[in-house]
């Protein structure tokens, strides 16, 4: 089983996690920029964080055979701190880089005017840089926040296929499926979504435009939840192709719209062909 975790915060995880993820079949991932538990107070710490997402973290991941990509953004919670507004000025420079495959996580936390302003500015940046967008939906007042997100996205000029709306549940899945945007489900040990509810949702809505992630971070979370969903799908009668679509082909199709995914080094297809020569080498 090959797995692409489309949303995981590896900065908060250990090398043991990388090893276990590789053993479980994870070969690629996207780490979106988000908050770190402790609020930050200056744009400089964001620059260091973004540099880490582009430098040290992909280097670390590569030691364990996993292709690391990232999404860059000012997250909604910290969008409310006026000291951090300068982060928006840093973004164009980072959105120009290889392996930045989306703008994200953007979205709403408490649906404040500041969050509105920062979300709209970043949707405009995504349009300009021709990047897909990873949209976080709020933990509280989720249904209302999700509907408002869909309205704002619609007005942004970005086509729905360039938008992934994440952290969905039974209350929000249908609206997003109907919108034409991609649907993201964060499978957690206790909260957001669990493995069995996930299977029920896949039965209800099918596997088109659906992504499953662990969203593992510094909180109570599990980087192997993607694999658990794959195993549960098979146990429930889904085919191997269904599992591959949800856990590999769908994230590749969504983030592939950036034109910046680099999977040759880790692609199981390349292993299968017995081709260990580095790709991209001039003939």
């Amino acid at each position: 089983m090959r797995i692409f975790d489309p949303h995981i915060h590896m900065t908060s995880r250990t090398t043991d996690d990388y090893r276990r993820m590789y053993d479980a079949g994870v070969r690629a991932l996207v780490e979106p920029a988000f908050w770190l538990g402790q609020p930050r107070t200056s744009p400089g710490t964001f620059a260091d964080y973004f540099d880490g997402l582009l430098g040290w973290e992909p280097y670390r991941a590569a030691q364990y055979g996993i292709a690391h990509h990232c999404a860059i953004a000012l997250n909604p919670k910290e969008a409310n701190d006026p000291r951090l507004r300068g982060v928006l000025d840093l973004l164009p420079r980072y959105l120009a880089k290889d392996r930045v495959v989306a703008v994200g996580e953007v979205g709403y936390d408490e649906m404040t005017p500041a969050e509105d302003e920062v979300l709209q500015a970043q949707l405009a940046l995504a349009l300009e840089h021709e990047l897909p967008v990873l949209v976080h939906t709020p933990h509280r007042d989720k249904a209302a926040g999700t509907l408002r997100t869909l309205d704002v996205v619609k007005d942004s000029g970005l086509p729905p296929e360039m938008i992934l709306v994440d952290h969905l549940n039974e209350m929000t899945a249908k609206a997003v499926a109907d919108s034409g945007c991609w649907s993201g489900f964060s499978v957690y040990p206790d909260t957001k979504m669990d493995v069995h509810r996930m299977i029920a949702l896949l039965r209800l809505y099918g596997t088109d435009r659906v992504l499953v992630n662990s969203a593992a971070d510094w909180g109570h979370s599990d980087p192997l939840k993607t694999r658990a969903v794959g195993d549960a799908m098979l146990a429930d009668g889904f085919t191997e192709e269904d599992v591959d679509k949800v856990l590999w082909a769908n994230p590749v199709a969504f983030y592939g719209q950036s034109g910046r995914l680099e999977l040759d080094e880790v692609s199981p297809a390349a292993d299968y062909a017995g081709n260990t020569i580095k790709r991209g080498v001039a003939p």
Binding site: A47, F50, D51, L54, G55, P58, Y59, R93, Y94, K97, D98, R99
Partner: peptide
């Protein structure tokens, strides 16, 4: 260099 990814550095 400082704000570059590994390839840029």
């Amino acid at each position: 260099y400082a704000h570059g990814d590994a390839g840029e550095r």
